[in-house]
Measured scan of single mutants.
Amino acid sequence: EDNEEPDPLPDNWEMAYTEKGEVYFIDHNTKTTSWLDPRLAKKAK
């Protein structure tokens, strides 16, 4: 069984939802937002 907990978001990142219910990510370090999960970006490298 694969019950892995997702990795926590990096420091100062926040997950948020648009009015349409779409997930996006806020990077408080750089005051930017991203559609890409920063956790996935790390694994892709």
Rank of each mutant, 00 (worst) to 15 (best):
E1H: 09
E1Y: 15
E1M: 10
E1L: 11
E1K: 14
E1D: 11
E1R: 15
D2P: 12
D2R: 14
D2Q: 14
N3P: 09
N3Q: 14
N3C: 11
N3T: 13
N3W: 14
E4S: 14
E4L: 13
E4M: 15
E4G: 15
P6E: 08
P6T: 08
P6Q: 14
P6N: 11
P6W: 14
P6H: 15
P6R: 13
P6V: 13
P6M: 13
P6G: 12
P8E: 10
P8T: 11
P8L: 13
P10E: 05
P10V: 03
D11A: 12
D11I: 09
D11P: 09
D11E: 13
N12E: 06
N12D: 08
N12H: 14
N12R: 10
N12G: 15
W13L: 05
E14D: 09
E14W: 00
E14C: 08
E14Q: 13
E14M: 05
E14S: 09
E14T: 08
M15P: 06
M15E: 10
M15W: 07
A16W: 02
A16M: 07
A16D: 05
A16S: 12
Y17M: 10
Y17I: 13
Y17S: 11
T18N: 05
T18Y: 00
T18S: 10
T18E: 02
T18W: 01
E19R: 09
E19I: 09
E19T: 13
E19Y: 06
K20W: 06
K20P: 05
K20A: 11
G21R: 08
G21P: 01
G21K: 08
E22N: 06
E22P: 01
E22L: 06
E22K: 07
E22H: 08
E22Q: 09
V23P: 11
V23Q: 15
Y24S: 01
F25M: 02
F25G: 01
F25V: 00
I26M: 13
I26A: 03
I26V: 12
I26T: 01
H28G: 04
H28L: 06
H28K: 06
H28V: 04
H28F: 06
N29P: 01
N29C: 08
N29Q: 08
T30W: 03
T30Q: 08
T30V: 05
T30G: 07
K31Q: 12
K31C: 11
K31S: 09
K31M: 12
T32P: 00
T33A: 04
S34C: 08
W35Q: 05
W35I: 03
W35C: 03
W35Y: 11
W35R: 05
L36M: 10
D37Y: 01
D37C: 05
D37G: 03
D37A: 04
D37N: 07
D37E: 02
D37S: 04
D37P: 04
D37T: 01
R39V: 03
R39E: 02
R39K: 04
L40G: 14
L40R: 12
L40Q: 13
L40P: 14
L40N: 15
L40S: 11
A41L: 06
A41F: 09
A41R: 10
K42S: 15
K42P: 15
K42Q: 14
K42A: 15
K43S: 11
K43T: 11
K43E: 15
A44L: 09
A44W: 09
A44R: 10
K45Q: 15
